[in-house]
């Protein structure tokens, strides 16, 4: 399919760039706050889940775009 880069990838880069800035800023704030304790196993598991979620969605949208343009 012939679509311009701006139509296909610019929204994706903006979503996971600006969205990523929000997400990772939030994550760093959590890690620096007393709400999170690395000693608590549950907290470490939730940290893993949060990171998984970001890449899960980035992957889903990426695969969706590749399927559309292939």
């Amino acid at each position: 399919m012939e679509l311009e880069f701006e139509r296909v990838w610019l929204p994706y880069l903006y979503l996971y760039g600006v969205g990523g800035l929000i997400f990772f800023t939030g994550l760093i704030m959590v890690l620096k706050s007393p709400a999170y304790s690395h000693k608590r196993l549950k907290d470490r598991k939730w940290l893993g889940t949060l990171l998984f979620g970001y890449f899960w969605y980035a992957g889903m949208h990426g695969v969706g775009i590749l399927a559309a343009i292939s």
Partner: peptide, 9 residues
């Protein structure tokens, strides 16, 4: 998902 860290913790 972007606001999940701040919501959960």
């Amino acid at each position: 998902w972007f606001f999940m860290p701040l919501f959960m913790f």
